[in-house]
């Protein structure tokens, strides 16, 4: 009897935003489900979603790590010049009472985006290869999802653009390679976001 009830619950899905309850039938590739009353995306089954996510996550990881050590903006004024890397920007508040802010910025623009990428690869690789999930995969994925709003790489990129315009009055400004790498990362992460279906991942992790 208990088993029957369990089986039954298996086919139900509740909207995480408004608690509306739906029965899901067979979900085919390319199907998309939205909540009828709040229009939250409940699931999206895209062809090769896992592969696309792993590929973009891997590319992003390489780009972020490489971008750390390259200058993203260089300025010149009156014969003095200075180039800053992303780590420099994160550590701008280092020393003094603003030290905590340095740590926060470091986390928001480097540590958390990078952690999310690595955890995503860790969670999805075995699933795409049709193997058993690696140990701790559930915890990894839950953490990665919880950190989603705190991963602010794209906001940092727009911040760079704003700084560029602010600086043009003061000095000659040149954009470095790391800036474009970060722009690429933002685009890749956006693709990942569209393709990722949380519901399918949990379903696969639970097998």
């Amino acid at each position: 009897m208990k088993d029957v009830a369990q089986l039954d619950l298996d086919t139900l899905i509740a909207c995480p935003k408004c608690d509306a309850l739906y029965r899901v039938g067979v979900v085919n590739k390319g199907d998309q489900g939205r909540c009828e009353r709040c229009h939250t995306r409940l699931f999206t089954r895209r062809r090769d979603a896992g592969l696309v996510i792993i590929a973009t996550a891997f590319a992003s990881t390489v780009l972020v790590i490489a971008a750390l050590f390259l200058p993203f903006i260089e300025i010149r004024r009156l014969g003095f010049s200075n180039a800053a890397t992303i780590v420099d920007a994160a550590l701008a508040f280092y020393g003094g009472p603003l030290f905590a802010l340095s740590l926060a910025v470091l986390a928001l623009i480097i540590a958390l985006p990078l952690a999310r990428l690595v955890l995503t690869i860790y969670t999805l690789t075995p699933l795409v290869l049709d193997r058993k999930p690696w140990p701790g995969a559930k915890r990894a994925f839950r953490f990665s999802e919880a950190m989603r709003p705190w991963s602010m790489a794209e906001i940092f990129v727009v911040g760079c653009a704003v700084s560029l315009i602010k600086l043009t009055d003061l000095a000659r400004v040149e954009i470095g390679p790391a800036f474009w790498m970060f722009v690429a990362v933002v685009v890749l992460m956006a693709v990942q976001n569209v393709v990722m279906c949380r519901w399918s991942v949990w379903k696969a992790l639970d097998r």
Binding site: I73, I75, R77, L78, G79, F80, S81, N82, A83, A84, D88, A89, A90, L91, A92, F93, L101, V105, L108, I109, P149, W150, M152, I155, F156, V158, G159, C160, V162, S163, K166, L167, L170, A171
Partner: peptide, 24 residues
Amino acid sequence: GRWSMIDVFVVAILCSLVQLNVAA
């Protein structure tokens, strides 16, 4: 909400970048 953080990042970028000795 997250986008308000932009100003903090701009400050971080400006402070790390504009360290030009006596010039600025």
